[in-house]
Amino acid sequence: MKRSKTMEFGVGLFMLAGILGLVFLGLKVSGLDLTRADDTFELNANFANIGGLKPRARVTMAGVTVGRVDSIDLDTEWYDARVVMSLDNDLLGKLPDDSTAAILTSGLLGEQYIGLSVGGSPESLEDGATIRDTQSALVLEELIQQFVSNMVNE
């Protein structure tokens, strides 16, 4: 019986280690924050061009991450891109409704993310509201085209 007890202990330890490992992978490696899941509110923004923005991209304010992009789809009424973001609840009711959203690029080759800048209006954005003032992603080809046509005009 003694042998079987140590064996059971070993198996128990093995399974416990597996579960602990999963917790480690969740918290430390994937940065899962269990409290944040339901503490968010949604904002919409329409962009003329989102460039390379992807779902799950960061949403920042003054460089601090405050949320993530939930989904991106085509708005068939205006034929522009409709981006749904979820932001930390701390910001609910504190963002003026003339705040702007811009698609920025981290570094020269980095990923694209959304940067929010605060406006000055007394009214604030509620859950599900839409940011009207947006700035599209920079697309290299368009820049070059503009530059060339300016050259020709001069």
Binding site: L22, L25, G26, K28, V29, G31
Partner: peptide
Amino acid sequence: YWGNMQESVGFIDDVGNGL
């Protein structure tokens, strides 16, 4: 090292799919 890791690894997408 840890920050970039947490930024890019999704629990369901990466850990979950791996499992």
